[in-house]
Design a binder for these strands. Structure first.
Lengths: 223, 223
DNA sequence: CGGGGTTCAGTGATCTTGTCACTGCTTCGC
DNA sequence: GCGAAGCAGTGACAAGATCACTGAACCCCG
């Protein structure tokens, strides 16, 4: 989860016709296929946004750091998705206010801003593609506000554990990582996890959490 | 602040050419001028979104209610602005997830969904108009997440007091209203206000807060 | 292989915020 | 003028955040 900090994306080839066009629209004339290793920083607060980004494989974690240094994960951009923040920066012409970090090796497509604008102008299909997930994302941000403001920590933690496990029986991350997921503090997460362990729901070891009683966690996560 | 609960907007006239076109684009052929009294509910969670809304005068407060009944103000739509949530619902075809309430009498313009889509398709200027503030709003939502997750309550309260006072020396609202602004609880706000009063920064009376030491509040709000 | 630095996890003390239960005061409608 | 509803204040306690510190596990390097 915390990994090598080699920044910047790698241009793969200058133009693009070998590559699948996930929009099916041929707006991708100027698009470049890009690749980034796990841990790469795609953008940071203050970065100027110069291209529309589309993930074709992998996962980018978008998170925010407060002035006091605490962090929270806002959302993830996964295979087939694009990033609200990027889109909004392009449309509004402002700078990034958060940080995007590759959680896996990531393959993607970058469309330079001017070409993106043209696409928006000229292609109804591309427009639809761009704005499709947009509404969904806004709704997700509002849900996040609700959870952060009103949600119980143990409930949110149980949800995240199940989510991050991706159906596996164990997940490899530190308590600090989970604290960032939830926008909470490491000690608080540690205590909640210890509590789960006392209930027999999980088993804790350094850098790893084994899920022993998934149904119990699901019960907590739902209600 | 809490006012009459007469719902629904009033159609004013069926078509629109007497009215200023704030987009300057003539996309408003099918638009209707609408009017709503203070306290009117423009939309609720679950409402289907059938028209693009633009405020020409007044203020609409958009807020969310958690399952436990606690509420938080997400943002306000003011003169010349339109509502992110409405736009995202139109583009994504989903339902409202929050509530919009008129804080003043509100004049506005409504563009039916089909016409809105046409406008987006055909008019670059209208498109620009629609997406202009959009990026800004997303950034605001992320700031809100930051504040809710990491901000101190007394700091946030001081900020809101100054904001809601609009330069006046007093503001008329209940402690409960302020709790909703901040997504907090009434008792907590009451205590923080009492604390401000002990410092001599404000004077409290039923339904009213007088700001006595604005500089002190500003100091707290900034730092 | 061993030693030393670093990362990770656990814990108590204390502060802030949220929740619950209840009180008394004001306001408003009848 | 009376009763109901709304508003504000308060104490007790729970949940979460912060601070300071401990020890264990891991990694690198000689």
């Amino acid at each position: 989860m915390t990994a090598a900090q080699k920044p910047h994306w790698t241009r793969h080839f200058p133009t693009l016709d070998q590559v699948d066009d996930p929009t099916g629209l041929g707006v991708l004339a100027d698009a470049r296929e890009i690749q980034a290793p796990e841990g790469a920083v795609v953008f940071r607060p203050g970065s100027v946004c110069e291209q529309y980004l589309l993930v074709t494989e992998g996962s980018v974690r978008v998170q925010q750091t407060s002035s006091s240094g605490r962090e929270i994960v806002l959302y993830r951009v996964q295979t087939g998705e694009s990033c609200v923040l990027t889109t909004s920066c392009l449309l509004g012409g402002n700078r990034y206010g958060a940080e995007g970090i590759c959680e896996t090796q990531v393959n993607g497509i970058a469309i330079p801003a001017p070409r993106f604008m043209e696409g928006i102008e000229s292609s109804p299909g591309f427009r639809r593609f761009v704005f499709q997930g947009y509404g969904q994302r806004i709704a997700e941000l509002m849900t996040l506000i609700d959870e952060v403001a009103f949600g119980r920590l143990n409930v949110r933690l149980a949800q995240r554990l199940l989510e991050l496990a991706h159906g596996q029986d164990a997940l490899h991350c530190t308590h600090q990582d989970l604290a960032v997921e939830l926008g909470s503090a490491r000690e608080v997460v540690s205590r909640a996890l210890k509590d789960f362990e006392r209930q027999g729901w999980v088993h804790l070891s350094r850098g790893q959490i084994d899920l022993l009683d998934r149904p119990a966690l699901e019960r907590l996560a739902k209600g």
